[in-house]
């Protein structure tokens, strides 16, 4: 009996060895194919509004999508395609954050689409930036370091780009800096094809702070003082 088992085990292990290296999981399981685009378009603002209250989104992000905490992202006016992908990534564990993973665990694809539609319909927070002192990286990037201009993907005024390129304007400063640090350390890797990781790794601490100050909304804690 034992020898039969071994005969089965050995060819199986050989097969595994010969099948080559096991590829890691993709950085995101979301693909903007025809079905996904139709699902995102079907998102209902009304249903999203109801769900936002019952799913406790409003506890941190408020009904407006504008938080009062510097580390909680502002999601008001974020494109539905971007929010949909992030929520799915939390669900698929391709983006890690305990609280969010728990919050989205039981949501259906339609629920996620509705929530994305609701927060996309909310007016974005205003950036506190001074348009006379635009960081050079915003418009020009740094070709020597292969750093692309921020506005090439995130919109001419930081209003967001296509599909998974988020708006930066009106973001919370703490969240902005923490996110860039996550990309630098590969702690966040759901940017398909290293698009943000490659850039973040080239940026200095000062540059990240300068960009965060430029794009971010007024810090709620500073505003309260």
């Amino acid at each position: 009996m034992g020898s039969i088992t071994m005969k089965k085990i050995i060819p199986l292990s050989m097969l595994i060895c010969l099948s080559g290296p096991v590829l890691a999981e993709p950085s995101s399981l979301v693909a903007y194919d025809k079905e996904t685009r139709a699902l995102i378009r079907s998102g209902s603002v009304e249903s999203g509004q109801k769900l936002m209250k019952s799913a406790k989104c409003k506890k941190c992000h408020f009904e407006t999508g504008i938080s009062d905490d510097t580390d909680t992202p502002n999601i008001a006016g974020m494109s539905a395609t971007y929010s949909f992908k992030q929520l799915k990534d939390y669900q698929d564990d391709t983006r890690s954050e305990k609280g969010m993973a728990k919050a989205v665990r039981k949501l259906s694809d339609q629920d996620i689409s509705d929530l994305a539609a609701y927060y996309a319909s909310q007016p974005m927070d205003k950036a506190a930036h001074d348009t006379e002192t635009v960081p050079r990286l915003v418009h020009y990037g740094d070709p020597k370091r292969m750093v692309r201009a921020c506005n090439s993907c995130h919109g001419q005024n930081g209003e967001g780009g296509m599909y998974d390129m988020p708006a930066l304007n009106g973001q919370r400063i703490g969240y902005f800096i923490a996110t860039m640090e996550e990309f630098q350390g590969d702690d966040r890797s759901n940017d398909i094809y290293w698009r943000m990781r490659d850039i973040a790794k080239e940026l200095t601490e000062d540059e990240i702070e300068e960009l965060a100050n430029y794009y971010s909304a007024v810090d709620p804690e500073e505003a309260a003082d």
């Binding site: 590829l23 890691a24 993709p26 950085s27 995101s28 399981l29 693909a31 903007y32 194919d33 025809k34 398909i192 094809y193 290293w194």
Partner: peptide, 17 residues
């Protein structure tokens, strides 16, 4: 090849580039 699902394909997955 389906461009919208490129990153999910084997040949053009991140690990294979």
């Amino acid at each position: 090849i389906d461009s919208t699902r490129l990153h999910l394909s084997e040949e053009f997955g991140e690990d294979n580039l």
